[in-house]
Simulated scan of single mutants.
Amino acid sequence: MSPLPIPSAWVEPLPEAAPPSDMALYQLPTGTYETRAIFAFKGGSFRDKRPFAATSVLIQHPQGDLLIDAGFGSQVDAHIQALPRIERAPHQLGNTVSEQFKANDYDQSCLHGVLVTHSHWDHVSGLDDLQLPIWINEGELQYAGQSKGGRVFREISGSHRIHQYEFRGGPYLGFPSSYDVYGDGSVVVVPARGHTTGSVITFVALPSGQRYAFIGDLTWQLDAIVHRAERPLMMRMLADTDPQLVREDMLRMIALAGTMHIVPSHDVSAYDGIPLLLN
C-alpha cells in the first residue's frame, strides 16, 4: 500500500488577503456517524471506528455571513433511510444548525446563504431547517440534479433559492481558477472536481493571520493528508466521480499542509481550535 509521492512543499508567499478585523469563524457540530478507518483511507484499521463529523462552519463577515455546509438536520433519520442500505451507518444527532442559532440568539438576517462543498446528504441535510439560499456552482448543480448521490439534495432544495457562482478568478495556490467571495481574499473557493463533478475547497484567512482550508470530502480524514493515503480502491470507485482528479488535488493540499490548517469535513479532530458558536 504505497503512499502517494511526496510533492514539493509550497514555498511561495500565500496569496494576499485583507480580512476585516471583525471577521470570525465558528464550528457548529450537528452530530456524527460511524465509519471504520479501513474504509476511509489506505492503511486504516478495521478495528478503528471513527466518528465522522457532520459539522457546519459559520463565517462571520461584515459584508454578510456565510455557512459552509449545513450538517445534519432534524429530518436526518428520513434522509438516511433514503440511502441504499449499504450506505447507512449508525449515527448520533446533536443540535442542528437552526437550533444552535436559536439558542445563541444569532440573527439569521445576517446570513447570505449556505455554500455547499458538495451535494451529498451529510452536507445538506440541515438545509431542511434553514430557509437560506444555497450557494452552488454549475458543475455541482448538474451533479445534484442527475446523480443518485444528489437524491436528498433534490428533495430539500426545491424550497430554496439557488445562488449560482462562477470561478472567474485566476489561479490560486496551485488550483487553476477561483472565486473570491468578498473580494478581499478572506474567503476563496476553488474547484476540486473529483469527489463530485462540482465539489469545492474553501480557503479562509482570518485577521489573526491563521489560514484554513475546508476541503470537503477530498479526503474523509486528516490521516489521508498526513500519510498521503488515498481512499481504498473500492471506495474510490464507489465514492469518487474521478479518482485521478482527487489524487491531483490531494497532492496540492499535501504540498500546502505546512502553511495552513486543513479541515476534511468528516474529521472530528480537524475542527480543534475553531471555537463553538455556543459557549
Rank of each mutant, 00 (worst) to 15 (best):
M1P: 00
S2E: 09
L4C: 00
I6V: 10
P7R: 03
S8K: 10
V11K: 13
V11E: 15
A17M: 04
P19T: 07
A24N: 14
L25Q: 00
L28W: 01
T30I: 12
T32D: 05
T35Y: 04
A37N: 06
I38L: 12
F39N: 15
F39H: 14
G43L: 03
G44H: 03
G44D: 02
S45E: 12
D48L: 00
K49M: 14
K49L: 14
T55W: 02
T55N: 11
V57Y: 00
L58V: 07
L58R: 01
L67D: 04
I68V: 13
D69W: 00
A70L: 03
A70E: 09
G73E: 08
S74A: 14
S74C: 07
V76C: 07
V76L: 08
A78C: 05
I80F: 12
I80L: 13
I80R: 06
A82S: 15
L83A: 06
P84R: 05
R85A: 15
A89N: 12
Q92D: 14
G94M: 07
N95C: 08
T96P: 05
Q100R: 09
Q100W: 03
K102Q: 15
Y106G: 12
Y106C: 08
G113H: 08
G113V: 03
G113D: 11
T117E: 12
H123F: 10
L127D: 06
P133G: 10
W135I: 10
E138D: 13
E140H: 11
A144T: 05
A144Y: 02
G145T: 07
V152H: 08
E155T: 09
G158V: 01
R161L: 08
I162G: 07
Y165V: 14
E166F: 11
P171D: 05
P171Y: 04
Y172K: 06
L173H: 01
S177K: 11
S178M: 06
V181P: 06
V181K: 09
Y182D: 08
G183L: 03
S186F: 05
V189T: 07
P191D: 00
A192P: 10
R193S: 11
H195T: 04
T197S: 14
T197E: 05
S199F: 00
V200Y: 03
V200N: 15
V200Q: 09
F203D: 13
G209Q: 05
D223F: 07
R228K: 11
E230P: 05
R231G: 02
M234A: 15
M234N: 13
M235Q: 08
R236M: 06
L238T: 04
A239D: 08
T241W: 02
T241G: 05
D242L: 05
D242N: 15
P243H: 00
L245R: 14
L245H: 13
M250W: 06
M250V: 09
M250N: 10
L251H: 05
L251N: 06
R252E: 01
M253V: 14
L256F: 05
A257H: 07
T259H: 11
V263W: 00
S265D: 04
D267H: 04
A270P: 04
G273L: 00
P275H: 06
L276W: 09
L277H: 08
L277N: 10
